[in-house]
């Protein structure tokens, strides 16, 4: 079963590479570099010194944005989930915020935070917080009410209820939310770098376009995609284990 599964995954990767090669054959080297050449170029980049400050800049902004998104999303989600009225008031507003094209808010972020790290982080946060919040909120609302009734019977103070009952029960959903939040935070940070930054992987992509450096653009895109897919795979595995494990125990 797993061997078959692995073979299927390999087939998919092969298919993606074939499509890529096909696009290259159709569009030519002014638009995109061929898979093999891109891997070679990306390897050269990673072996050299040039790219690492940019990777560092992106990762710093990304880590900060993700940490803020996670804490803010979980905290707000728990509060809004436990206080039903506040939750009912806020949920449609948050869902509406989720669907607006936040890229257009970028100028506002720049005007508020100025050029540099804080604008990038803020942009990542407005992308990443909402999914974590919505997943947490839904999880709290669907929490078996017997848990909370038991807590009340034991006269637990609210802080203990949050720490010993609500948070542990929420972990699987929070991980699901973090997986989506992870992706959107990365999107936010990279887009932020594309517009107004002198460092970072997003800057390298847009700079490659402006200076017609096709191998650079394609290679950096590849590096970002590989990172995103790998991180997603790890979080997905954790997610499945937590959900599955929960079901086995009860």
């Amino acid at each position: 079963m797993t061997r078959l599964h692995r073979a299927d995954t390999l087939l998919v990767i092969l298919g993606v590479l074939l499509v890529w090669q096909g696009v290259f054959a159709y569009a030519g080297s002014t638009a995109i570099t061929a898979p093999l050449a891109t891997f070679a170029y990306a390897w050269g980049l990673l072996a050299g010194n040039f790219i690492w400050p940019h990777v560092g800049a992106t990762m710093l902004a990304f880590a900060m944005a993700l940490a803020i998104s996670a804490v803010l999303g979980v905290a707000l989600g728990v509060v809004l989930g436990l206080r039903r009225f506040a939750g009912d008031v806020a949920e449609p507003l948050i869902a509406a915020f989720y669907t607006i094209p936040k890229v257009t808010l970028y100028p506002v972020m720049l005007l508020i935070f100025g050029l540099g790290l804080s604008a990038k982080v803020a942009f990542g946060v407005i992308h990443g917080t909402v999914p974590v919040l919505l997943f947490t909120l839904t999880a709290v609302k669907t929490l078996p009410s017997v848990y909370l009734r038991t807590a009340r019977t034991m006269r637990m103070p609210p802080r203990d209820v949050a720490r010993h009952i609500v948070l542990p029960a929420l972990v699987p959903e929070i991980v699901s939310g973090l997986r989506v939040g992870f992706a959107l935070t990365l999107l936010g940070v990279i887009i932020g770098e594309m517009f107004a930054s002198q460092r970072g992987l997003g800057f390298l992509i847009i700079n490659g376009i402006n200076s017609n450096n096709v191998p650079m653009t394609t290679s950096v895109t590849l590096i970002v995609v590989v990172f995103a897919v790998a991180a997603n795979g790890a979080l997905l595995a954790l997610d499945r284990q937590l959900h599955h494990g929960g079901r086995l125990r009860t």
Partner: peptide, 9 residues
Amino acid sequence: AYYAVPGFI
């Protein structure tokens, strides 16, 4: 993995 990739790149 689709939506994990920042599509705009």
